[in-house]
Simulated scan of single mutants.
Amino acid sequence: MSVEVERKFACETDIQEKLKDIGAVCIGQYRFTDQYYDSADFNLTLEDFWLRKREGSWELKCPAKSRANLENKADKLCTNYREVTDLAQIKAEVMKVMKNSTEAAESSSKSSQREQTPDERWLKDLELVCFAEFTTLRCSYTLESAGAAGKLRVDLDQADFGYCVGEIEVLISEGDDMQSAQQRIQKTAEKLGLGDEKKIQGKMDVYLQRYRPEHYSKLIDAHIL
């Protein structure tokens, strides 16, 4: 299973030129729509689990490291999530987190054994509803890191609600050296002239702050955002 180590940054007007100057290669531009799901009581997101449907494909982001164990500046500027893309495993992970009644869990287990219908019956069984939906125009770059295995990726995202943010990302296998991935991200940030004094808000942070203030407030109080 992969772990996404990521740092967000504010997009300046000359960021694409800076990326080219450090040897980043543009691999394309594309548009996608995300739908995020949770219970009415925010059971998933208050545990830092993010269930997403992107262009028909499901993904669950699970916390890879406890916030109580943040050790250094790189830890505080980066996010670390396990990425689950197998639907059966996603359902199993979600059911562990959900605080639904035993009856609801049993109902979901039975329904998951049947052929899934377009209305995603399992979501109804677990009383999960869409709390956020937005479309992103993304321009992606890759960058080789000297002496490091695998490419580093940089995404420039423009959300349809008027927010632009950049992301520096390294994918590693679960159990691999996370500190090494953070160091690669830090070096790239330095090459791009990015400051490291504060964490930049992601698209979800801004979306919730604008359109779901109650949800946003609860996540702030729980130190998730």
Score class of each variant (00 low, 15 high):
5 V>C: 12
5 V>R: 01
5 V>K: 04
9 F>P: 00
12 E>H: 03
14 D>G: 03
14 D>H: 02
15 I>S: 01
17 E>N: 11
18 K>C: 04
22 I>E: 01
23 G>C: 03
24 A>S: 06
27 I>E: 13
28 G>C: 11
28 G>E: 05
28 G>F: 13
28 G>P: 01
33 T>C: 13
37 Y>R: 02
38 D>G: 05
41 D>R: 08
44 L>E: 09
44 L>R: 00
45 T>P: 01
47 E>N: 15
48 D>A: 05
56 G>F: 15
57 S>A: 15
59 E>T: 07
60 L>V: 04
61 K>E: 08
62 C>V: 15
67 R>F: 14
69 N>P: 05
74 A>C: 05
74 A>W: 07
78 C>L: 07
78 C>M: 10
82 R>E: 06
83 E>Q: 14
84 V>N: 08
84 V>K: 04
87 L>D: 07
88 A>L: 13
89 Q>H: 11
92 A>V: 06
92 A>C: 05
99 K>G: 06
100 N>Q: 12
100 N>Y: 09
102 T>H: 07
103 E>S: 15
103 E>A: 15
105 A>N: 03
108 S>T: 02
113 Q>W: 09
115 E>Q: 06
115 E>L: 12
115 E>I: 10
115 E>A: 14
116 Q>C: 09
120 E>R: 01
122 W>V: 05
126 L>A: 03
127 E>Q: 14
132 A>P: 07
133 E>I: 12
138 R>W: 10
141 Y>P: 00
144 E>W: 08
145 S>E: 09
146 A>W: 05
148 A>K: 05
152 L>P: 00
155 D>R: 00
156 L>M: 06
156 L>H: 01
159 A>N: 06
169 E>M: 14
170 V>Q: 08
173 S>P: 04
174 E>D: 13
181 A>S: 06
182 Q>P: 04
182 Q>H: 06
187 K>W: 13
188 T>Q: 03
192 L>Q: 01
201 Q>G: 11
203 K>E: 06
205 D>Y: 14
206 V>F: 10
209 Q>Y: 07
211 Y>E: 08
214 E>D: 15
215 H>R: 06
217 S>H: 11
223 H>M: 15
